[in-house]
Amino acid sequence: MSIFKYLKKRNSTASVAKERLQIIISHERSQRNAPDYLPKLQEEILAVIAKYIPISRDQVSVSLERMGDSAVLELNVTMPEEALEEI
C-alpha cells in the first residue's frame, strides 16, 4: 500500500467507525459479566457516603473485575474539594 493510500485510509470515515466501535464495545463487554446487583450496590454505597460528605452520583464508581479465580470489587470515590478542606 502506498503512503498516500495509507494516509487516506487513516483519515477515512471507516477508521472513525472502527475506533468508535472499539471503544463502545470494550466498554459494553466489561459490563457484560457484571452481576445484576452492582447498580443497586453503587446506589446504596453512594447513599452512605452522602450522609457524611456532600457528593454527587458521578463521583462514586463501583466495578467488579475477575482475575483468574478471584474477583476484585473496586470502589472509587472522588472527594469534593470542600470535603478536602475540612481534613
Partner: peptide, 14 residues
C-alpha cells in the same frame, strides 16, 4: 477501498 466502509479485517478484529 475508498475508506467509506469497514473492511473484513476491521469487523473480524472487533
Amino acid at each position: 477501498e475508498k475508506g467509506e466502509m469497514l473492511s473484513v479485517e476491521d469487523v473480524k478484529e472487533i
